[in-house]
């Protein structure tokens, strides 16, 4: 029963958890460790499952807290995300040269996003990549609604402005 519940309700969100951990930590191995720790913790807390209203939100919160704790404890490695690891990234492009240029552009955008202040980066990630509602973001990040909206506005405009600036003046 519990294994079935775990496989049907908790395990399917593992990639979403991984992307959140990756956005916070910027390190692939660290992000995988955090997701594994959280899933093991969730498995061990089977008694708590019936009382949890939204198991996906619960797991997301565990990942957020664990990843931020890791940063604050100074134990995280300083890695960097690789845009090249994205599946089907350059599928749109007709030639190898265009595909390489496209990969560079994606890597640049990734770098710009990772350089945003933490709140802006997380709000933009949750809204523009995970497509979460404002209310869900408020509950996950423990931020007031107006702070979520302000951070989203600033993040989108910072990425656009920095991206267009480098596009116009060359990378």
């Amino acid at each position: 029963m519990s294994l079935t519940y775990f496989k049907q309700h908790i395990l399917p969100v593992k990639d979403k958890l991984y992307r959140l951990a990756l956005r916070i930590l910027s390190d692939d191995a660290e992000a995988q460790d955090v997701v594994q720790e959280v899933l093991v913790k969730a498995w061990r807390q089977q008694d708590a499952w019936p009382a949890i209203r939204n198991v996906e939100a619960w797991c997301m919160k565990l990942v957020k807290n664990q990843a931020i704790d890791k940063i604050r404890s100074g134990k995280q490695r300083r890695g960097y995300l690789e845009a090249e690891s994205l599946p089907g990234l350059a599928d749109h492009e007709p030639t190898p040269l265009a595909a390489a240029e496209y990969s560079d552009t994606m890597a640049h955008l990734l770098k710009l996003m990772q350089q945003l202040p933490e709140k802006q980066r997380l709000v933009m990630h949750l809204r523009d990549i995970e497509e979460m509602s404002y209310q869900e973001i408020v509950e996950l990040l423990d931020l007031p609604m107006n702070q979520v909206k302000v951070n989203l506005f600033r993040a989108r405009n910072a990425v656009r402005s920095l991206y267009l600036q480098t596009e116009n003046h060359g990378l």
């Binding site: 991984y18 992307r19 994205l86 089907g88 552009t105 994606m106 523009d128 991206y163």
Partner: peptide, 17 residues
């Protein structure tokens, strides 16, 4: 000029373990 940005957001959602 916004094509790369929206393709980036879409591609990021396909990241998986």
């Amino acid at each position: 000029k916004y094509i790369p940005l929206f393709r980036f957001l879409d591609a990021e959602k396909s990241r998986s373990l």
